[in-house]
Design a protein around this nucleic acid. Structure first.
Lengths: 323, 323
DNA sequence: CTGAAAGCGCTTACAG
DNA sequence: CTGAAAGCGCTTACAG
């Protein structure tokens, strides 16, 4: 059996209260007692049981992370940074891949609640109207509006969409197509599309939009890209709202020997190692993670007064050779 | 405050014992009582506190997952599958990105122990001689020998290395270089190198090996690749033991207008969307996840008799255009 | 400076 | 079929 505080107390010849005190460095303890206790802990290879602590303290130091899937490199990198920063602050991460499915997301939310997480970071993009604020839980969203009161962190999506579209226009493209995820209401990421629409109008070009479900499965994008090339053979510029779409489009264009300008979105390390030629809008992934955690911890610590409800971080154009 | 079992009991006019019984569907309860209790739970929006349950049951249904980083698409996809399967079985995943640093790994291990995880899946590759079996904890390793008694799950690394090297030989390459991670002792993944060495000898070619640290940072591979091209301008074939190395090499070769055959390793969905032309050895990532969890659960349930100590899953050659 | 007691929210023998 | 009591491993007032 694992040793418990009582075992340590017995071995050290003190009371459990005293052991708890040295564990938490709380109250007065004589150096002699402290040493005795520490020795006993070492001898027994004692680790405190955080479950028991959580039960008493009503603080689990657990953060729930809900996102579509770590298989997508953007979320894989975001997850890495979030977990990494959390660990450095003494928080632990309970991971949930919801695949954007509302039913899964609901189950995960309940699971996190049962496990007494101190807060939740939500990075999914479905339309579920989940009541994330029930139980007065601390919540922060990445690129998604959950409710009036839940803070949102995102890259400057409008500026990203604008920069990408402007570059294509600057490249003299005459027929610029947007490839976007399937219609979501009121996602901040929708601003990428908004910027594209605005610029198309401004330059008197017709917006053409293709929507692809983000299923993260190989080749699942190809049928829609086929449609695109069939229906708009004149396409000479594409802004894709994520790099996987952009890469799929680029590879299909190469197959067809089509000369085309392409700009993606996300700019993950993975993309830049695998396909450095892709011109893309880089999100500040690490900063997004930092900002989200910063806000979440403020909520947990109940520093509600200075909670920024909307945080927008700057994007950066990464020039490859595709535009 | 969150409602607790006592609140439900009061509202339903029964004892906490009875509420617990309907919660766990255990022992006899009259339908009428069950209904009353269920109604009270709904009314109060009651969720059981899993922390309290864990404390009593000595079962957390928590699995610790330690790996280098989810920012690497192989681990991102592996993590997705592991978490996904765990969720379907009622287990929750506590994520740890160790970046292959021994000190971090040790801290994570202690953290997982304190949190009373039921088991740990280890996918890191450092040389740390961690005592993972202390406390009689259930452990399974992916592609790594931890100790004599800890089961290992991996792809058929030797076959992968053999298939890749044979393909390059078959492509008439005269100077075949291996790009591998930095020397690790006794990793199953080392068999990829072993197969390369064996085949080089068999075909009377000189093995040439370049080692790169897996730091997962953009452009960090380039200096070593520069060395490779300078020191061995005659190189006409490369087997890289992961796709990120392979892609970096391929992109550098293109820059230099060098015609070269390249085979990678891993074959993630991400790779195949971003760089489908890369010929690679595909690991069965989902099957690896399934096998690891299957074994871990056997350990947790103490079905020790039929624990396979070594599980090798078949790889598959994916033919792109690079070899 | 140290300890006995009560309690965090559950569950499970044990009685009835 | 139902309930009172004890206990999971901790921590924190409260006394001394």
């Amino acid at each position: 059996m694992k040793p418990k505080i009582e075992d340590v107390a017995k071995l050290a010849g003190v009371s459990p209260t005293t052991v708890s005190r040295v564990l938490n460095n709380r109250g007065y303890i004589s150096d002699k007692t402290r040493d005795k206790v520490q020795q006993a802990m070492n001898e027994l290879n004692y680790f405190p049981n955080d479950v028991a602590r959580t039960l008493f303290n009503k603080r689990s130091n657990l953060i729930g992370l809900i996102l579509p899937t770590t298989a997508n490199p953007f979320f894989g990198e975001l997850t890495f940074h979030i977990e990494n920063i959390c660990a450095s602050l003494g928080y632990k991460v309970l991971l949930c891949n919801s695949l954007n499915q509302v039913d899964k997301e609901e189950k995960y939310l309940e699971m996190l609640l049962r496990n007494q997480v101190d807060g939740i970071i939500v990075g999914t993009h479905n339309r579920g109207i989940l009541d994330y604020h029930k139980q007065g839980l601390a919540v922060v969203a990445i690129d998604r509006y959950l409710s009036e009161t839940i803070p949102v962190v995102s890259s400057d999506n409008y500026d990203g969409g604008k920069t990408a579209t402007e570059l294509l226009i600057h490249n003299q493209c005459q027929c610029i197509v947007l490839i976007d995820g399937i219609g979501e209401l009121e996602t901040p990421a929708r601003l990428r599309r908004k910027a594209y629409m605005d610029l198309m109008e401004q330059h008197r070009q017709t917006p053409i939009i293709y929507e692809i479900a983000e299923v993260f499965e190989q080749n699942s994008y190809i049928p829609i890209l086929n449609d695109l090339f069939t229906e708009h053979p004149e396409v000479d510029g594409v802004f894709a709202t994520n790099d996987l779409f952009a890469a799929a489009l680029w590879n299909e264009a190469k197959k067809r020997n089509k000369s085309i300008k392409v700009v993606g979105y996300d700019g993950t390390e993975t993309l830049r190692t695998l396909l450095p030629e892709l011109t893309t809008i880089k999100q500040p992934i690490k900063s997004l993670a930092e900002a989200a955690i910063d806000i979440l911890i403020k909520e947990i610590e109940e520093e509600l007064p200075d909670l920024p409800l909307e945080t927008k971080l700057p994007i950066k154009l990464i020039k490859g050779t595709t535009a």
